[in-house]
């Protein structure tokens, strides 16, 4: 027993700093010793004495090892395609860098890596295929998000076929909550499919792409969609009626109204099959 007056708060803050040090517990002990140990003690063994088999640093290293091992594993599980792209060693470096820059503050590990795509884009030291890695990370993050999102009962496809012709323009479509639309720098689907199926995967050339990630039931889907579908869908998600959305696209994007009108039937048939809408409301009586 020591004679020091270390409060519980001080000892917890000290231990967490030691066991989350990026270079491990030894480095954590050096850093905290340099800055002054809690309770004014002179040596770490006055806080954690160790035993005949393990020094204080070795005991603390058990927790330090588990800290990064556990959290890096979470990132590996959530971003398998990014890991495949950059390789396991580079991925571990990126994951560790992320954990140091963005230590977890939430009780759930599900929230740990929310900022990982932005970290890869804005903060990580330059690495090969960075832009494509960001695109993959955004898709994988969205897949995690929709996995846990609240489930809505999707609209039956008959609900669309039963809409009277004269009411389509005033129809407002509420999407299921478990859906994300992503604007990406690269196409991602072929690469992700190849990795998933253990086939050879080539890094694609950059090309603006939109991907819809959605979970109508218990399975998560990801599907590339055209830029025009994306523009309409985002306006519908924002609460515009179909008539308002179509008018805005024709006005702002110089789209041939006849072409757009001709495409709508196919698009809505696809969206009905994909079960991305949860409800329809109509303007007027």
């Amino acid at each position: 027993m020591s004679d020091s007056q270390t409060t519980l708060e001080q000892i917890q803050a000290w231990m967490l700093r030691v066991v989350t040090h990026p270079q491990g517990a030894e480095a954590g002990l050096r850093a905290t010793s340099r800055d002054g140990l809690p309770g004014g003690v002179a040596r770490p063994d006055q806080l954690v004495p160790g035993n005949s088999r393990l020094t204080p640093a070795e005991q603390l290293q058990i927790y330090a090892f588990m800290y990064f091992a556990r959290l890096v594993e979470v990132l590996q599980m959530e971003y398998p395609t990014v890991r495949f792209l950059v390789g396991p060693e580079q991925f571990e470096q990126l994951a560790r860098g992320f954990l140091v820059a963005h230590p977890s503050s939430h009780y759930s590990l599900n929230r740990l890596s929310v900022a990982f795509p932005a970290y890869l884009r804005d903060e990580a030291t330059e690495f090969e295929h960075r832009t494509f890695a960001v695109a993959l990370a955004e898709v994988e993050r969205a897949m995690e998000d929709v996995t846990d999102e609240q489930r809505d009962e999707p609209l039956a496809s008959e609900a669309l076929t039963e809409i009277p012709h004269d009411r389509w323009a005033g129809a407002r479509f509420r999407p299921i909550r478990a859906m994300r639309l992503l604007e990406l720098s690269h196409p991602t689907s072929q690469f992700m499919n190849a990795v998933q199926q253990d086939r050879h995967a080539s890094v694609p050339s950059p090309e603006p792409t939109v991907v819809c990630v959605y979970r109508p039931n218990n399975i998560v889907f990801r599907k590339p969609i055209s830029a025009l579908r994306y523009r309409l869908l985002t306006r519908l998600i924002d609460g515009q009626s179909l008539g308002e959305a179509v008018e805005a696209i024709v006005m702002n994007d110089s789209i041939d109204p006849a072409f757009l009108a001709g495409s709508l039937q196919e698009w809505f048939r696809d969206w009905a099959e994909d079960q991305v809408f949860a409800a329809i409301e109509f303007d007027g009586p």
Partner: peptide, 18 residues
């Protein structure tokens, strides 16, 4: 965890009256 930083591990308590 402490200070808003969650280490997601089960860290030991000092066994004191405090």
């Amino acid at each position: 965890g402490v200070g808003g930083h969650n280490g997601h591990d089960l860290y030991p308590m000092p066994y004191t009256e405090e």
